[in-house]
Each structure stands twice: as C-alpha cells, then as structure tokens.
C-alpha cells in the first residue's frame, strides 16, 4: 500500500507510481492534486482543448466492469493531454474469454503501455495490477474498495463551493455498504479534516464504520439538519432484489432526498451525487435540477481532476533527467 517509485514517483507530492486509493494519501497530497486541477479547468474552456504534455504516451482504459461516464471522463482527460488512448471494455476483451488478470497484466507489460486506468469488479484489483506492471496504474473503481478520482472531484467541488474542506460537515446518504465512492470520500474528507457522517437503512451501513471515525445517523432528516453537504449515493435495483431494502418506493419515502426535506435545512446545504442518478429513488428531480445541486460542476471538475492525476503520475524522473543529460554530452 506504500507508494511505489519504480516508474515516475518524481512528482513533488510523492504520489508514487500509482493512484489506487485515497486511504494512504496525506492531506497535503490531496490538496496538492486539487490545486493542480485548477489550471486544467481553464484548458477545458479554451477553443482548442488540448495541451501536448502527454504527447506520445500510451494509455489503456481497462474497463472490466461496465461504465460509460467514468470512461468518457478519463478519455477526455487523456485526449486533452494529447495522449494516445486505447479502450478495453469487458465485452469482447480477452478477459471475458477467461484470461486472468495476471495474464492481462503480463500482456500490458509486454506491449509497453505507459499508463493503465482500470475499473474492475473485485476489490483489490487495482493494487493487484499495480504490483505486477511497471506502468502507472490509476484505479477507476475496484469492487467495493475505492474510486479515488471520483472522491477527488467531489472534494474539489466542495472546496470550490465552501472555500475549504477542513471542519465542514459532510453526510453520505444511501448504500454505503456497497459503495466504493463512499469509502474513498470518507478517506479523503477525513484526511482533510472534515467531519463525516453516514446515513441510511442499517442494512446498508457496513459493520465497523464508526471505528473509521464516522458518525452514523439513522434518519435523513437528521442528516439534513446536521450537514453542510449531502452526498447522495445511488441505490441500485439489485439491492432490492437481494433483500437489503423491501422496495425502492419505501426507500424513497424514508430516505429519499426531496425538496420538502431540504427546505427544512437550517442553513445552506449543497447536494452532490456521483451519478448516474435514479431520479425518484434516492434523489428527486427537483433536487437534482435545483439550486442546491452541484452535480454538473462535479462532472466538469471530473475531467480536470483526472487530467491533474494523469499529469502528476506520468513521465518525469530525476534519474531519467540525469541519464538524458549524459546522453547529450
């Protein structure tokens, strides 16, 4: 879990070769990534949304779990940095034919890929890959473990709106048990000094979460009264099928974030959602589209944050600079 410095590891933040999660990062590192994302926001406003900084780098988007929005966001980030990108999706890739992750790793190494962005259905898969290939590995979501770039864009959005993260009260509402986004956000928020709570039916709150430093609130009304930021998680249909909640209608009635509930908030409250939304289940449309919502800024920030992460992890090492200098002499 420590920073691996075999490739790159030369960023001033000491991030190492890979970004597999936020659990092992410090506040300085997280704030440093957010600071680096700022100039990349400006590039997305230009007419030519491209800078040559990763020109010639090959990046593979290894998405072994379906995803459209995250993959597109990464693709934009990579292309705006002038990298060459290749997409491997779970349908039609060799993994579906039964190739193990170990063999996939070996193939990627043999093809001399510079960076891999991986999304996978098993917790620990990103670290598994990172340990086996010299390329930079970025975790785009592994099982229920972490989704660090999502949390980083959430933190940037919160910081932009509230001015800081330290001391802010953030409540994550919904299916925390199955959410890698929730875990990454918990780590990121806590590292940067925020107060974190979770709220949802007990069936969806994982055991031992208080031991991580998180408060558990049982009713969404409590959450709205307490929090400055409400982070609403998607409730998947499978949870109802698996019996965690009896029905989506019941979930919406008792835990849904609605206009009526938000209007009773004592002060300003901002609402975030990682997407895609189940309108009418965990969040009502007039909230998603309403004045509390920061959902669209999240998406904009997503590309900038991913550009910042790619920029910080890619290329550049003092050793290479030395040897390049020697070669010139």
């Amino acid at each position: 879990m420590t920073a691996n410095t075999t490739n790159g590891g030369a960023d001033g933040l000491g991030l190492g070769k890979d970004l597999t999660g936020l659990q092992q990062l410090t506040c300085e590192q997280i704030e440093g990534i957010l600071d680096t994302a700022e100039p990349f926001k400006e590039i997305s406003e230009r007419r030519i949304k491209k800078v040559p900084v990763l020109r010639g780098k090959t990046i593979v988007n290894l998405f072994l779990e379906p995803s459209t929005r995250t993959r597109i966001s990464f693709e934009f980030a990579e292309k705006r940095l002038s990298a060459d990108t290749v997409n491997i999706a779970s349908s039609g890739s060799s993994v579906e034919k039964g190739e193990s992750l170990v063999d996939t790793a070996r193939n990627l190494e043999a093809m001399r890929i510079d960076m891999v962005v991986i999304r996978h259905g098993s917790s620990g898969a990103a670290q598994f890959l990172a340990d086996r290939i010299p390329s930079n590995v970025i975790n785009a979501g592994d099982g229920q473990h972490e989704h660090p770039t999502q949390a980083l864009l959430d933190l940037l959005t919160i910081r932009d709106r509230l001015g800081s993260i330290a001391g802010r009260r953030v409540c994550i509402v919904g299916d925390v048990r199955h959410s890698r986004v929730a875990r990454s956000d918990i780590w990121g928020l806590m590292r940067c000094g925020a107060e974190v709570a979770v709220c949802g039916p007990k069936t969806l709150i994982p055991m031992g979460i208080e031991e991580l430093g998180v408060t558990v609130l049982s009713r969404v009304e409590e959450a709205i009264e307490w929090a400055e930021v409400l982070y609403v998680l998607r409730l998947q249909l499978e949870r109802m099928d698996a019996g965690f909640v009896p029905s989506l209608r019941e979930y919406n009635r008792f835990f849904g974030v609605s206009r009526e509930r938000l209007e009773r908030a004592p002060g300003d409250i901002a609402v975030l959602h990682p997407g895609p939304m189940n309108r009418g289940v965990e969040i009502d449309s007039d909230v998603a589209d309403g004045p509390w919502s920061l959902i669209l800024p999240q998406v904009t920030n997503g590309v900038a944050v991913r550009m910042a992460v790619l920029y910080l992890l890619a290329g550049g090492s003092p050793e290479r600079a030395e040897s390049a200098k020697e070669a010139r002499e």
Partner: peptide, 17 residues
Amino acid sequence: LYRDDFGQIGPKPVIGS
C-alpha cells in the same frame, strides 16, 4: 504544459494560469 522536456524533468512544476 508545452515544455519539450516534460519526460525528463523531476518534480512537476506547479502550473500557473
């Protein structure tokens, strides 16, 4: 972001606006 020595420099410089 337009430097031609990006692959060889050490700690990434802070990007200004």
